[in-house]
Amino acid sequence: MAASAHGSVWGPLRLGIPGLCCRRPPLGLYARMRRLPGPEVSGRSVAAASGPGAWGTDHYCLELLRKRDYEGYLCSLLLPAESRSSVFALRAFNVELAQVKDSVSEKTIGLMRMQFWKKTVEDIYCDNPPHQPVAIELWKAVKRHNLTKRWLMKIVDEREKNLDDKAYRNIKELENYAENTQSSLLYLTLEILGIKDLHADHAASHIGKAQGIVTCLRATPYHGSRRKVFLPMDICMLHGVSQEDFLRRNQDKNVRDVIYDIASQAHLHLKHARSFHKTVPVKAFPAFLQTVSLEDFLKKIQRVDFDIFHPSLQQKNTLLPLYLYIQSWRKTY
């Protein structure tokens, strides 16, 4: 089996927390979720979201995140109150960019949308954001926290390059993509939290790379249903696996070995980020709550012996909000 052949990389499970039942964490995340308004986002309300009498641009960002990046939404709820709305805006910006690729039928249209967001970032730093909910909220975040323009532009530029429907040539190319998107998002989150620390940035770099790799793995069944495969070609070739094997949902050992190798790289990034947690300011830990969902996925895929098409991998963990709150309460990542 794939797991038994390579099992030495995987460390002990961390979500089991001995003695936790003896201490009762304060009510927090679930209460916040219940208090949030929840009407559906419609095209009509989106168009009017920044106008008078609408929910408001902040509510639009929150709803977009809740629907399109639920794990990011849950993590954002546990940030300090003064930072929450800015991170909602930042993550909503990322969602807007991420959904361009799947929402257009022609690359030219995707490039036009990316050009809109490039100009939007430029206009935000000229205090002239367009009348668009996410743009307005992002402008507020930039003004409030003096966010670095370079990180925002890196996210747009990398998403634009990724409009080509090509597999990553190697794991390094996937890591570079993750660094310029997910890690950049974390650098900006640290700025919102008021953290300027080399060790925190180092952790953000590795956690962002782990996030990018896990996202690529999780999306494999969806991409396969659209006749697309984006997994690193070098690892596929190493194990003699073709793109057609993934399109046919082949579950042979060599296919699972490909998934094992890729998942192991995410695991190593996560492990390395945690190896120097004592040197990272505690104030930075809330920015890294996504490690909970990353670890949850890596454990699940290990349990199914790296069968990327196993139905259990597509099921939401209903206990994730609780695990996130516990992680926040324990002040760790």
Rank of each mutant, 00 (worst) to 15 (best):
C75F: 09
S242L: 03
R249Q: 15
F285E: 02
V104H: 13
V104C: 15
L174S: 01
R274N: 01
G110C: 12
H277T: 11
C216V: 15
D261E: 10
L74N: 04
D127I: 03
T215Q: 11
Q115M: 06
S225P: 08
A203Q: 00
A178F: 02
V241H: 02
F276S: 07
M153D: 09
S264Y: 06
A284N: 00
L217G: 01
H206P: 00
F88A: 15
H199E: 07
S242K: 04
W55F: 15
N254C: 15
P321I: 04
T57D: 12
N250I: 13
Q265L: 14
P129R: 10
W151Y: 06
L198C: 05
E175M: 03
K166Y: 15
L324A: 08
C126E: 14
A200P: 01
S275K: 10
A273H: 01
A92H: 03
I301L: 14
K299R: 12
V241P: 00
A92M: 07
A141R: 01
I124M: 07
N94S: 06
I136C: 11
L163D: 04
F306I: 00
V46C: 13
Y168F: 13
A47L: 04
T291G: 01
T279N: 12
T332V: 12
L217T: 02
V304D: 01
A49L: 15
K101C: 14
D201K: 05
D245V: 07
A266S: 07
F246E: 02
A273R: 00
Q290H: 09
P52Q: 08
S264H: 06
T57M: 12
D261A: 09
V121Y: 02
V104Q: 11
P52A: 14
F276L: 08
L324I: 13
D197P: 01
Y222C: 09
F88L: 12
D102L: 06
S85A: 13
H272Y: 10
R330N: 10
L111S: 15
F88N: 11
L152C: 03
R218W: 04
S85K: 11
L188K: 00
A49T: 12
A167P: 15
F93V: 03
A49V: 14
F93M: 06
S205P: 00
K166H: 13
F285N: 12
K299C: 13
D164E: 12
D127Y: 05
L90Y: 00
S183G: 10
R169E: 07
L270A: 02
P321D: 01
A81V: 15
A47Y: 15
D69E: 07
P311K: 10
L190V: 02
A54T: 08
L147A: 01
R248M: 07
V87Y: 12
H239K: 07
W329M: 10
K67E: 10
G72M: 11
W117Q: 00
H206S: 04
A141T: 15
L289V: 08
L163A: 08
Q290A: 13
Q265G: 07
E63M: 08
K278D: 13
T318S: 11
N128I: 13
L77A: 04
A273N: 00
L74G: 01
S45P: 09
K161G: 13
L147C: 04
H272V: 08
R218K: 15
R150T: 07
V87G: 10
G72K: 05
Y222F: 15
A284M: 02
S105H: 12
G208Y: 00
F285Q: 12
P133N: 07
L190G: 01
E82S: 14
R84V: 09
L74A: 05
L238Q: 13
F246L: 12
L185G: 02
G208A: 01
S183D: 03
W329S: 06
L185W: 00
Q327C: 07
K228M: 14
E158F: 09
Y325P: 01
K228S: 12
N170W: 04
I109H: 10
H199G: 07
S86P: 08
I301G: 00
L298K: 01
R144Q: 12
L65P: 01
T57Q: 12
H239W: 03
M114F: 14
K196M: 09
S225L: 14
L320I: 07
K149P: 04
A284W: 02
F246C: 08
C126V: 15
R91W: 06
H206D: 04
K331Y: 10
K172V: 13
G240A: 10
L190F: 04
L138Y: 00
Q211T: 15
Y70Q: 08
E63P: 04
F309G: 05
L324H: 06
Q132T: 13
H223L: 12
A47G: 06
A219C: 07
E106N: 11
Y168A: 07
K107D: 15
Y333E: 01
A204F: 02
A219Y: 04
F88P: 02
F306H: 05
M233R: 03
L247F: 07
P52Y: 14
E96R: 05
L185C: 07
Q302V: 06
H239L: 02
V95E: 05
D58Q: 14
L138I: 09
D123H: 08
F306Y: 07
P232Y: 01
I171Y: 09
V241N: 01
Y222I: 10
L231P: 03
N128H: 14
H277N: 06
L97M: 08
S293E: 10
V100E: 06
E106P: 12
L231C: 04
E295W: 08
L138M: 12
N176M: 11
H269G: 02
D102M: 09
V100D: 05
Q251A: 15
V229N: 11
W55V: 13
S86M: 05
C126N: 14
Q251C: 15
E173P: 00
L163C: 11
L270Y: 01
S86N: 06
E82I: 14
I155Y: 05
Y325V: 12
I195A: 08
L270V: 12
A89T: 04
I207A: 01
Y333W: 05
G56V: 15
G56N: 15
I301K: 01
A266M: 01
A178E: 02
K118C: 04
N254V: 12
K161R: 11
P286N: 10
M237F: 11
R68V: 08
L322Q: 03
S275R: 11
S76G: 15
V104S: 14
K209A: 03
V214A: 09
A81H: 15
V241A: 13
S45D: 04
W139P: 01
L186P: 01
K271A: 15
V134P: 03
E63C: 09
I136M: 12
L238D: 13
G53T: 11
R68H: 10
A48E: 07
R159T: 04
L79C: 15
E191H: 06
A204N: 01
Q251S: 13
D307E: 06
F230V: 15
F285L: 13
I136L: 15
C236Q: 09
R256C: 11
G72S: 12
K101R: 10
Y187R: 07
T57K: 15
